[in-house]
Design a binder for these strands. Structure first.
Length: 225
DNA sequence: CGTGTTTGACCTGCGC
DNA sequence: GCGCAGGTCAAACACG
């Protein structure tokens, strides 16, 4: 069994991001294949899961749907790729690793153990760090900075970070009482790629999905849980 | 006029 | 304690 502390702090994998979907990505073979490894049992096997993975898949779905709807394709030809990675900025504390190992369920349910790296949960560590919302980030190869994920965002800041040529933008979900934030920045090593980091969990459905595809929304829920 | 963006100032955590 | 860097605030501004 793969041990948590043996998993690299940052793992990255690419998912095919079919640009020319004709049907809802939720039901496309490519999509099913892409998310085949993220199963309800794999999520359930991870005690520290707090739903952020659901938000992740939800968001990726929305982005794929929006891109497909608007005929958006990669400007570089070939398939558009999307990568996910666990942040190594806030590594797991020893306590979290221990707790996670202790709480893991059966071996069979842990077949996809590597994929829980998608989500991060920040806790107060030894009373020094303040509580942070769960985060996940991913890279997309896109010529547009802000991907349409179905949610409505309001920009509240922009900052030039060290050793990068592109500024980082800060957004907050405009929904009342929803405290989800996202950061958008260009990948320093390849400015064709956009790094989007989400923090927190939406307490509502995306306006677009809610209005246009509530059926897909319920299917998504069934798919994930 | 309402909504969203820009941007400089300020706050906070962290390393030394 | 100090300085740096990232994150947030909020007034000014732009736009439909």
């Amino acid at each position: 069994m793969e041990r948590l502390d043996q998993i690299p702090t940052q793992m990255e994998f690419l998912l095919p991001f079919p640009p020319n979907l004709t049907s809802s990505p939720l039901f496309s073979p490519q999509y099913s294949k892409s998310f085949a490894s993220i199963t309800p049992s794999s999520l359930a096997s991870n005690e520290v899961d707090d739903g952020s993975t659901s938000n992740l898949a939800h968001t990726l779905l929305s982005i794929t749907a929006q891109n497909s709807k608007h005929g958006l394709t990669s400007t570089f030809g070939g398939p558009q790729f999307l990568s996910l990675h666990r942040s190594n900025v806030n590594p797991w504390s020893l306590g979290e690793v221990t707790d996670c190992l202790r709480n893991k369920r059966t071996r069979e349910e842990n077949q996809h153990v590597g994929f829980f790296d998608i989500k991060m949960k920040m806790k107060k560590m030894k009373g020094r760090r303040k509580v942070r919302e769960p985060r996940f980030s991913f890279k997309t190869m896109s010529d547009v900075d802000v991907l349409d994920d179905g949610y409505k965002w309001r920009k509240y800041g922009q900052k030039v970070v060290k050793n990068t040529h592109h500024p980082r933008s800060y957004y907050r979900c405009t929904q009342v009482n929803c405290r989800v934030k996202k950061r958008v920045e260009r990948f320093a090593e390849d400015s064709r790629m956009v790094i989007t980091t989400y923090e927190g969990r939406h307490i509502h459905s995306p306006p677009d999905l809610h209005l246009e595809d509530s059926h897909a929304q319920s299917q998504l829920t069934n798919f994930l849980w």
